[in-house]
């Protein structure tokens, strides 16, 4: 347990040092995310006009956008860091010093989530300044919202482990990551509620969709998540995320073993 805390501390410090030393990366990231949002926002407004319909869906739009950010960061972080670290030989150094790599990646996922929250807070600040739109949120719903966000991110990171595992074996799979980011963008904005039952069932099996649906209930409609009508959905989200993190981890462990068999931890 203390070792886990030390990992956590080491990872936090490493992240802080890197962000401090290379601030441009973070600023560029923030700017790009903001500009994409601005483009979408202005585009949508010019299409729909400033009608009440637009006003209503704006909150949902923002929620989807923020959750999309978690999806991309969960997937790209792991694959990108594995690509870079294996080419520099750092991966082997990590395995020499801490062989339980999956555990280390959980810790990194957590640090990444915290970092993502800070990032999102900044992004949301910019968005609010631009759109003059506050998300409806009172203190009572903060806990449930946090729970839903965490559950969703766990599922997304579990999904990311599939690609992290593939990155261990095949290295350059960054291009696949780009396609996935687009895929998740569609997923975040798809009007799932208006689809056929079968379509809904299928889409709710993917990560992200259930989380966004629950968040919209709280943040757009202003209804409580912990109402009895929503508990089924909440359980569904928990089960979905548990599946992804378990299967993703198992797949990741398999790939790790295969990488050790094929001598692919290094830059070979």
């Amino acid at each position: 347990m203390t070792q886990l805390l030390r990992l956590l501390q080491a990872e936090f410090i490493r992240t802080l040092i890197l962000r401090w030393r290379y601030p441009l990366e973070l600023l560029t990231g923030l700017t790009v995310m903001y500009l994409i949002f601005l483009g979408l926002f202005l585009g949508a407004r010019s299409l729909v006009g400033e009608t009440t319909g637009f006003e209503l869906s704006l909150s949902g739009f923002i929620v989807s956008y923020l959750m999309w950010f978690f999806a991309i960061s969960a997937i790209s972080r792991l694959t990108y860091s594995i690509e870079v670290e294996s080419s520099q030989g750092v991966l082997e150094q990590i395995f020499l010093n801490y062989p339980r790599y999956l555990l280390l990646q959980y810790v990194r996922g957590f640090v990444d989530f915290i970092e993502g929250l800070v990032f999102i807070a900044a992004l949301l600040g910019l968005i609010i300044l631009t759109t003059h739109r506050m998300l409806t949120m009172d203190w009572a719903s903060a806990g449930p919202v946090a729970l839903v966000v965490i559950l969703t991110v766990v599922g997304l990171q579990g999904f990311g482990f599939f690609f992290g595992g593939l990155a261990l074996l095949f290295k350059r799979i960054g291009q696949v990551g780009g396609v996935l980011q687009f895929g998740f963008f569609l997923l975040a904005y798809l009007p799932v509620e208006r689809m056929s039952v079968v379509g809904q069932q299928l889409l709710y099996c993917l990560p992200l969709t259930q989380g966004i649906r629950l968040l919209k209930i709280a943040l757009v409609d202003g209804r409580p998540i912990f109402a009895s009508a929503n508990l089924g959905m909440l359980a569904g989200l928990a089960a979905n995320s548990a599946c992804y993190i378990l299967l993703g981890s198992a797949f990741f462990l398999l790939c790790e073993k295969k990488a050790k068999i094929d001598g692919r931890l290094g830059q070979y």
Binding site: L18, Y22, Q88
Partner: peptide, 16 residues
Amino acid sequence: SRNVYWRLSPMENLYY
């Protein structure tokens, strides 16, 4: 291969 984080300093690598 150098097997260390290139963006960290020698000291930070040793600590990490």
